[in-house]
Amino acid sequence: MLKINGLKAEINGKEILKGLNLEVKPGEVHAIMGPNGSGKSTLASVLAGREEYEVTGGDVDFEGEDLLDLSPEQRAGEGLFLAFQYPVEIPGVSNINFIKTAVNEVREYRGLPNLETKEFMKLLKEKQQLVELSGKLANRSVNEGFSGGEKKRNEIFQMAMLNPKLGILDETDSGLDIDALRIVANGVNELKTKDNAFVVVTHYQRLLDYIVPDFVHVLYDGRIVKTGTKELALELEEKGYDWIIDEFKETV
């Protein structure tokens, strides 16, 4: 589904990703962990198409398409979704109109007709329940005045509405209490099928108790320096990153 090959990216002339390789297949959940500044959020941003980052090398294949050649909206149309670490507040745009516009634009991209209001409302209700998002938030401006937990649940709600092939969760767990974390994780687990995949970028092993990964990757200095199974996350929680960094430095 996703094949990242030697990806290099920089911002303001500073290289952050230094030749990153990663392959994600349908039905898989990948966790990306790593110390601060290792490039985790950069990876998420580059995949979603944030323009501040300049890709200087490598390529990304997503379902046979050259992902880096596509605009952010085209990537969404192709089935990529990024749940933001810091969801943006948009005053004056109601959450419901926003998601309706998004759903219909994505459907248009995929050659599907607009959803009838009735169908849309049904889908809306169903997905709101999935992340226990209050109906009241639908009429409020996007993320404006939402609590931290509500913002993150709103991200998962949007993901559920857009039904992507690949969902990238950028530190969706940071700042959440256990209850909110459970709701978010439960939402993701409900959405999981054998045909889609998730990349979970996180700082803490905690989230991985709820969203069980098939692979855990450690990102350091712009590269994936170690890959393992969920047990690796537990080991990281216990021992920190230094041993991996040392191991990596020895091989270099």
């Binding site: 969801p87 943006v88 516009t101």
Partner: peptide
């Protein structure tokens, strides 16, 4: 930032 957010949801620029 808001523009990028909307675009990542599939909304044309």
């Amino acid at each position: 930032e808001a523009l990028f957010y909307l675009r990542t949801r599939g909304i044309k620029e």
